[in-house]
Design a protein around this nucleic acid. Sequence first.
DNA 1: CAGGTGCGTTGCATTAGTTGCAATGCTCGT
DNA 2: ACGAGCATTGCAACTAATGCAACGCACCTG
Lengths: 253, 253
Amino acid sequence: MSQTVDRALSILPLLAEGPADLGQVADRLDVHKSTALRLLRTLHEHGLVYRQSDQRYRLGARLIALAQEAMENLDIREIAHPHLVRLNEQCGHTVHLAVYEESEVLYIDKVESRYPVRMYSRIGKPVAITVAAVAKLLLADLPEGERRALSDKLDYPMYTSRSTPNAPAFLRELDKVREQGWATDLGGHEESINCVAAPIRGADGRVVAAMSVSAPNVVVTAEELLTLLPLVRRTADAISGEYSGRTPVKDSR
Amino acid sequence: MSQTVDRALSILPLLAEGPADLGQVADRLDVHKSTALRLLRTLHEHGLVYRQSDQRYRLGARLIALAQEAMENLDIREIAHPHLVRLNEQCGHTVHLAVYEESEVLYIDKVESRYPVRMYSRIGKPVAITVAAVAKLLLADLPEGERRALSDKLDYPMYTSRSTPNAPAFLRELDKVREQGWATDLGGHEESINCVAAPIRGADGRVVAAMSVSAPNVVVTAEELLTLLPLVRRTADAISGEYSGRTPVKDSR
DNA sequence: CAGGTGCGTTGCATTAGTTGCAATGCTCGT
DNA sequence: ACGAGCATTGCAACTAATGCAACGCACCTG
C-alpha cells in the first residue's frame, strides 16, 4: 500500500539470505542506487540493518530484540512453557509448541531432547506445513474456505516417500486429524523422525496452538512414541484449561 | 532519512510494548489515522505486523522468522555453540554468548544451567550494559573516542548497591577489564548472581564477542565461581582460534 | 606513480507518492 | 433501533521520494 515502505521492507528478507552491498540491494529492488541507499540508511537508523566492516549490510541486532519482545507478548507461550518442560522431564524427547499465523506455522517454543541424538529445528523457523503434525492440527481447525484456499496455494515437497503428496491428500489428512483430535508425522519430513501432536484450544474451542513430541527412530519406534499420546493430550488439555481460565487475548501490560 | 519508512518502522517498537489499535498508533506517531492505517497495512503485507481478532495490531510472525535468520548468519554463534555446550557440561552453570552492535550488547546464545535455580535472561534481550561482565569486555575494546561517547550517553541504573554508579567509574572499570583480559559481575545486576566472562577475539585481535558463566550465590559462592575463570578463558580462546582460522566475516551463502 | 575502474555518496529538479480531510461504513453497546 | 466509536475509502493538495549526473574515494593495473 505504501511503495516506499514496501520497498524498504523488501530489503529485510533479501538480507536474511546473507549480507549484500548497496549495488546488489538496488538491483534486487529494481531502484536506483541512491534510493536504495536512503532506504538502507533509514533501516539502519532503526537498527534493523547493520553495516559490517566490509561496508556490506546485514540484518541488525534490534530485529532480534524485537522478535524477542514479540514472543514475550504471546501469552500461550508463557502459559505453556512450564508444561512443556514437565512433559520433557517425563518422556525425555524434544517438545515443540507451534502457532499458525498468516499462512505460516512456526515454532514458538522448544524444549530439547535429553537424548544425545537431537533433531534439527529452531524457534522461529517456519515449519514444513504440509507434513508436520502440529501444522496439521492448526490447519485442520481453519474455516473450510480458508483451508481449501491455503491447501491449494501450498507446495507439496516430497521430503520423503511418506510426505503428503498433494492438496486432496492433505485435505483428507486434515479431516482425519480434525476428527480424531490429534495428529502424527511418521517420517513425513525426515525419514527417521516421528512426531505425535495434540491441539491447545482457547475458551471458544478454537485451536490456538499445537504441541508435539518428536523422536528419531533410533531412540524409540513409532509405536513406542504413540504410547505417549495420552500424556501429550493430557498436557495439551492442561494448557488449554489454563489458557481459557485466564484472560484470553487480553492486554499484557 | 526517509520520512515514510521512518514512521513505519517506528511502529514496531511501539507494538513491541503490547498490542495497539489504529488510533493509538496514529496518536503515538502523530499522524492522521488514514496514514497510520496505510503504514500498518504495508507492515502487515510483509508479515511484520499481525492483526488479532479484536482488530488490534501486534508484532507478526515473520519478524520472529527474520530474527532467526539474522542469528543464523552470525558465524560466531555457529562456531561458538558447541564450545558453550561443552563448557556447560563441565561446570553445569548458565553460559551466555554476547555481541556488541550499535550501542547495544545482546545475548545471541545461551545454554541453560543444569541446576534447578536458573537465572532469567533471554536470547535477543539487550543486556544491562553498565554492569554485565560480557558488556564490559565488549565495550572495553571499543576505540577510545567511541567508548567515551558511549559511556557518556548511557544511563547508570542502580540495580543493586554494587552496580556501576556513573561514567567515570565505568570507564575505570573498562580500563581494568581491558588490562586483565577478563571481567566479572559480582551482584551488580541482581544481588545474588555472579558472572565471570572472557573475550572472544578475531584474527586481528579485536574483541568480536564475549562469553560468560553465571550462577546464583545459592549454588556457588563468588570465590568458587572465580575458580572457573581459567576454564572460561580457555574456552573463549578455543573459540577465538577457530573463528580466526576460518573465513573471518565471509559471505555465508 | 599515473590512469582507470568500481563502489558509495551528494545535490538537485522533476514528479510520483504520501498526506490529511471529510464522508462513509461498520460494529458494538444501550 | 439508535447512536457512539472506530476503521475505512476517495480525493485534491502538496510534500517528500525518485533518478540523474557529478563527485569522492579506494583499490587495481600497466
